[in-house]
Amino acid sequence: MLSRPSWFNITSLVVGFSFLYLPIVILIVFSFNDAQLATVWSGFSTRWYGGMLQNEQLMQAVWITLRIGLTSATLATVLGTLAALVLARQGRFFGRSLFSGMIYAPLVMPEVILGLSLVLLFVAMDQNQGFWTIMIAHTTFSMCYVTVIVQSRLSEFDRSLEEAAMDLGCPPVRTFFHITLPQILPGILAGWMLAFTLSLNDLVIASFNAGPETTTLPMRIYGQVKLGGTPEINAISTILILLMTVGVILASVLTKRQRLKRMEEERLAAAHL
């Protein structure tokens, strides 16, 4: 039923969206502000985008953040997928509930506590804090997200496919790579994307585990804002927002188009009896 929206609906929609997106819009608008002071509008300019690229500290932070994100997301995806396979496939084994509880704990654990405990561990192990400690810390907390996604994908997976492969002479390990992996790949990719995003966004855990040479982008932004934000920060934030938006739209368009194509093909197959 398509009926005319009432005034109440329109108002609540406007208020809700403003609440969510007004701050972001303001950030984007001020990234094009000519003035040095971030709060006063003095004309349109793109000079902060150029300045941002000249800012060596900022660019270094971007580079470190990307490296940590790529490595920790990859490691978390491998470990998280293995954990999901064990949980989905091993059936009931001794310590299963403990294992799954421990896998999922970081989902609800306060970041501060997670960060602190990791610091204590690295100090006890006499490790210098830096790239590796942040990378391991990010792997630890993002792994559980990968497990959740991959496990849900595995639960939809028709196990008779694996049996069919083995029945046709395919040993178990080859079966995993030939049959299982291609089927759960979308879940694994989604898990990787999520882990990468989480690593990119993280401030708290990174702050705990960072060394003097390793300042990630969120840490740099946070530090700069505390000293009074510069428009350069607005510029780089705008670029981040843009990248995220494009990523999300691309992903949803791709999956939607795939689904539509599939539905169309199934309809055609049924019609040509």
């Binding site: 008779s160 496919l161 049996e163 069919a164 083995m166 029945d167 002479g169 395919c170």
Partner: peptide
């Protein structure tokens, strides 16, 4: 199972969705 000289046709058919008909038969 992968060393037994018999093959099974499954109730769900268990065709490999990411492979063409040819690839399925050739597997």
């Amino acid at each position: 199972p992968y060393k037994r000289p018999m093959n099974m046709m499954f109730q769900s058919y268990a065709l490999f969705p990411h492979m063409s008909v040819t690839k399925n038969i050739a597997f």
